[in-house]
Simulated scan of single mutants.
Amino acid sequence: MSAYPPILLVEDNPLDVDLTLRAFQRRKLANPILVARDGEEALAWIPRWESGETLPTVILLDLNMPRVDGLTVLRTLKSHPLLRRIPVVVLTTSKEDRDVQVAYDLGVNSYIVKPVGFDNFMDVAQQIELYWCVINELPK
């Protein structure tokens, strides 16, 4: 068991999962990374968190996924009394104004369009790590 709270990555694209895991591994991120491969898997974590499993320090959420989309996951998390304070960062390919607007209306903490290329993704991973895992102070 890690002394650091986990990060939950909700992403259905295996290449993006691999890219994210490699970027954080290269950064030597201390927080363990949990992966939910679609929105349904992400929502399946809720009973575990309700029963006392360590809450993630941040949730990285894709929007365009099969079975349950990211906006539905976001709506569910932000309406849950235990989970609504967990920072959620949308990490998606969608630049649609409507997606950005709806995500913020639902309470997203940050909206990042996935960069192209590993080096650019490394920069994003570094910023996520620094802000959400080191600088940001979460309520107890």
Rank of each mutant, 00 (worst) to 15 (best):
Y4T: 12
P6A: 13
P6E: 13
I7T: 06
L8A: 09
L9G: 00
E11V: 01
D12A: 06
D12S: 14
D12N: 14
N13S: 14
N13C: 10
N13V: 12
P14Y: 03
L15V: 12
D16S: 12
D16I: 02
V17Q: 15
L19H: 01
L21Q: 13
F24K: 03
F24Q: 06
Q25H: 10
R26G: 02
R26Q: 14
R27D: 10
L29D: 01
A30H: 13
P32G: 07
I33V: 15
V35H: 12
V35Q: 06
A36E: 08
A36K: 07
A36W: 06
G39M: 08
G39F: 07
G39T: 05
E40D: 13
E41F: 02
E41I: 00
A42M: 09
I46Y: 07
I46Q: 05
I46T: 07
I46C: 06
P47Q: 11
R48W: 09
R48F: 08
S51W: 02
S51P: 00
G52A: 09
T54S: 13
L55C: 04
V58T: 10
I59M: 12
I59Y: 01
I59R: 01
I59D: 02
L60D: 07
L61F: 01
L61G: 00
D62R: 02
D62Q: 03
N64Q: 11
N64L: 13
P66L: 11
V68P: 10
D69R: 06
D69G: 08
D69C: 03
G70T: 11
G70V: 04
V73M: 07
R75G: 00
L77M: 13
K78C: 06
K78F: 06
S79N: 15
S79V: 03
S79L: 03
H80E: 10
H80C: 11
P81E: 09
L83N: 13
L83S: 12
R85Q: 14
R85M: 10
P87V: 07
P87N: 11
P87M: 10
V88P: 06
V88W: 06
V89G: 04
V90Q: 00
T92R: 01
T92P: 01
S94H: 03
S94C: 04
R98Y: 07
D99H: 14
D99R: 03
Q101M: 09
V102C: 03
V102M: 09
A103W: 08
Y104H: 11
Y104C: 03
D105M: 12
L106V: 02
L106N: 01
V108L: 01
S110A: 15
Y111L: 05
K114T: 05
K114E: 10
V116N: 10
D119S: 11
D119A: 13
D119M: 08
F121N: 00
F121A: 02
D123Y: 03
D123P: 00
Q127W: 03
Y131Q: 08
Y131W: 14
W132P: 05
W132S: 04
I135T: 15
N136Y: 15
N136F: 15
E137W: 02
E137P: 00
P139G: 09
K140S: 14
